[in-house]
Design a protein around this nucleic acid. Structure first.
Lengths: 199, 199
DNA sequence: TATATTTGCTTAACACTGTTAGATAATTTA
DNA sequence: TAAATTATCTAACAGTGTTAAGCAAATATA
């Protein structure tokens, strides 16, 4: 009876160990190698146990993408707090986004990959909005007016995101991009957009 | 003996029907639904027959991406030939690229998807260079000098490609992008880059 | 304390997947 | 017509996600 807490704690631990195991397989062998049986092996249970914690494989992976968004949000927040000027903040935040994509390569693929969870984006991941909102705010600030027009912020946000995400995708899929090209394109593009925002 | 030609013709037909069947499944149900057995059903053979034409499923899909690049190259060539001014050509070519991505959504995902054929990009798809080279040439022309510096063309090319591919990826994965935003971002970005190139 | 009930976990199966070896049927050659 | 070749299929292997049924241990009830 008094063991209810302990039981819950054990359950939480198991849930976390499932996510950890899945993440480990994803990172070490790629998502195509992730299987329920492999997870079960690692956590030393049989596969059906996993279904007591997650409805199915897709739900499990959705949880992992949420973890990814939380890490990204934390990183970007830290980057923002390193500067005072909005233009410097923006630059560092996007650079942080860039670095995250390669430091957590597999996680980024899971979060933005085209295959994995296509058509499951019906706002079921509120975590995804956190990094977006952070950028939105800084863009608004950079504009330097009282009530910055929503649609303009939106446009700028998508321009930023497109160029950064596009460059990342290209680099993740093909690895023959000339050396040094990435940094130049990235800095040029980000700088250009920032200049077009600044009053 | 004289039937060698006819035999070869039948073989070619079967090969094509395999590709057609695979393409149909990909388009209608998505690539995650593509299976060798489904292809076999459509072509009215048993699965092992497919392996006489393609080493494995991956090789079959690689062939489909090549088909995709050939269609894209044809479309872009037509777009270019509609104009004389390089800036107009560039604009139309990227718009054509954009339209292709949505008209041939599944094909585009196969060509540039992060999951499917990751790490198989060791220049094994010469077709992929055709559209790239077309853009390169027009950028060089737009610069208006005798020997345009390679690295600058390269940089511009990647900037173009990043923003367009990024915007496409975002739209293919999540479908909540505000209406009209895409066109604006696209036109702004392309226009901006073109202006930065023009002498 | 003895019985009933719930909980945790496993076994075994189903319907799939890509892929291959071996058998069989059809065609071509001698 | 008989032999050799080619075309095709059957059946299997090892893997996948997922679920139903059963067992055993912990808990709650009498």
């Amino acid at each position: 009876m008094a063991s209810a807490d302990r039981k819950q704690r054990i359950k939480d631990d198991t849930r976390k160990s499932i996510l950890d195991a899945a993440m480990r397989i994803g990172r070490e062998e790629g998502w195509q190698a992730l299987s329920m049986r492999k997870i079960a092996d690692i956590i030393e249970y049989t596969p059906p146990v996993i279904y007591e914690y997650f409805a199915n494989k897709e739900a499990l992976m959705l949880e992992l993408t949420k973890v990814g968004y939380r890490i990204l949000a934390k990183d970007m927040k830290a980057a923002q707090e390193k500067h005072r000027l909005p233009e410097k903040q923006l630059e560092d935040m996007w650079l942080t986004y860039w670095n995250f994509a390669f430091a957590e390569k597999e996680l980024y693929q899971l979060m933005f990959g085209i295959e994995v969870n296509c058509c499951v984006w019906d706002n079921s991941i509120p975590e995804a909005e956190v990094p977006a909102n952070m950028i939105w705010e800084v863009i608004g600030e950079l504009m330097g007016v009282e009530n910055p027009p929503e649609d303009l912020i939106c446009k700028r946000y998508y321009t930023f995101w497109s160029v950064v995400h596009g460059l990342i995708s290209i680099n993740l899929v093909r690895q023959g991009v000339p050396d040094g090209m990435n940094e130049e394109v990235l800095k040029d593009a980000i700088g250009g957009i920032i200049r077009s925002i600044k009053p």
